[in-house]
Design a protein around this nucleic acid. Structure first.
Lengths: 141, 141
DNA sequence: CGAACTTGTAATGATTTTAGTTACAATGCT
DNA sequence: AGCATTGTAACTAAAATCATTACAAGTTCG
């Protein structure tokens, strides 16, 4: 029922890349901050790369953000870490009984509402940029 | 990364209860429409009951809606089928490194944004009543 | 009353997802 | 040349999801 912590980790990674952009930090270093295995980090950076948010070079540490941080939104990151980009937030049960009026129409009735709810959530994520997160993280003691 | 289909099934069940409120439908009948096992239905009805949305009597078929359908929102149903009512929509990774400024502050920085995004989604669900769903389901051919 | 049904719930299983780990080829740096 | 690093596959472990079996406890109605 929850959105994978992979998302939170992705934001964590991007923040680290920004804050340490002068150095070249390794997946090992990032893993130390996130507190997980370096491979988990590399996998997520791979997704961020495919989504065009970071630029990486095989064998060389220090992925770079592909855009200025005020032009990367949390929605961009959310989309980037979705394994299946087609997948909707709300799951529908499959094969309800077409013989029954409810079974036949429930999917259509829910799709619209579910899409709207998902949209509302995504719009909130779109409003927040990485810059804001990095700012907050740097502010605190 | 998705919200359990238990939610869609719960809405399906409530719609059936409303549309067939004159009869006393069994979990077996509902299961036929949803296309799943009757026990799955009874479990979900159990959750709806604990949340005060339906009234059931052990041994007797035909759960009743506890309120008029225009006073049951999809948010009510959403909350009802959450196994852990404390659980947030967005998962945070646990134990980020407190030695690192990002590790130390990322949770706090994300909590607010995540809460807002979740709220936005929930508000959309609150806007829709069971009545609207039942109406749509009954409209279609 | 007693047979037939029904609910509520525990226990179990199958499948999928999530997160972590090991291993290693390929690449780049110095 | 040698060392560090990435990218990726393969595997494991744990959790979540959904389905199923089983059965006690309740209801209904002849």
């Amino acid at each position: 029922m929850t959105i994978s912590s992979r998302y939170a980790v992705a934001i964590h990674i991007l923040s680290l890349l920004e804050i340490n952009k002068e150095e070249r930090i390794t997946s090992d270093f990032i893993a130390g901050s996130v507190n997980t295995n370096p491979v988990v980090i590399r996998r997520i950076i791979g997704m961020l790369g495919k989504a065009g948010l970071v630029i990486t070079n095989p064998g060389v540490a220090g992925a770079q953000l592909a855009r200025p941080i005020d032009r990367i939104t949390l929605l961009d990151v959310y989309r980037a870490v979705q394994s299946d980009p087609e997948e909707e937030l709300f799951a529908l049960h499959d094969n309800p009984n077409p013989q029954c009026p409810v079974g036949r129409n429930i999917q259509g009735a829910l799709e619209g509402t579910f899409a709207q709810a998902q949209k509302a959530m995504e719009e909130e994520l779109r409003k927040v940029t990485l810059q804001q997160i990095v700012h907050q993280v740097s502010q605190e003691p």
